[in-house]
Amino acid sequence: MNIIVCAKQVVDVREIKIDKQTNKPILKGIGKTISDIDKNAVEEAIKLKEENKDTKVTVLSVAPFDAREQVKELLAMGADEAVLVSPPEEFDYNTVSTLLAKAIEKIGDYDLILCGEASVDLFSGQMGPRIAGLLDIPQITYARAMSIEGDKVRAERDLTDKAVKMESTFPVLITVTKEINKPRLPSLMGILGAASKPIIEWDGSDLLEERMEPGIKSVDLRGVSMERKNVVYGEDPEEGVRKLVISLGKEGLLG
């Protein structure tokens, strides 16, 4: 069985600060990582590989080639191979999903495509359903559990108001939630092994028949800073409680 996991390189959102002068988020010089939930998707793929013989796990990312470093971590976890597709200068979700779908078709012979429920920087949850739509295959979103039984995959979806059990034949695209598993940390053996695993680079423009105009352009990015008083009572709890109640009273919040 062939599993393709779509993984996104994102800026480390924990490091983002707002530039007070320009009121823009400072994105330059910030560390990059693989989006959190995509690691859950990789973990799930590796678990399926452990349970099902002859399974190959390919990690796929539309990202500048400097994402090699981040992708290596996924190979160290246990994925077999990675494909990096470089995006054009200007792109939107439509462009990236088209590139991912074209790359998946080029990899060919796929059974299961896994995505994260949403990426941690933009949190859209768009890409999975878009890819499934382009490939014209079923989508099972928000899976919090899944298993393969014979020629079928079963998954349990969390739809907030309902829990829905699904089954599908292959090929199928599944997006996973953070709760589906706990991603492993790469072992030393894994890290050493990753060095010899292939990372294939494709130029995005070769995958597209023609240049794609983005259907959406970002016209502004405004920082939203959150100033707080940061008064912390660290002494004994009795004192802390007393002072807190006085403060809340002064704020006019008690009755």
Partner: peptide, 11 residues
């Protein structure tokens, strides 16, 4: 976007 650190205006 970015966990509430910014508002993106998109056209």
């Amino acid at each position: 976007v970015y966990n509430g650190n910014a508002i993106s205006v998109e056209r």
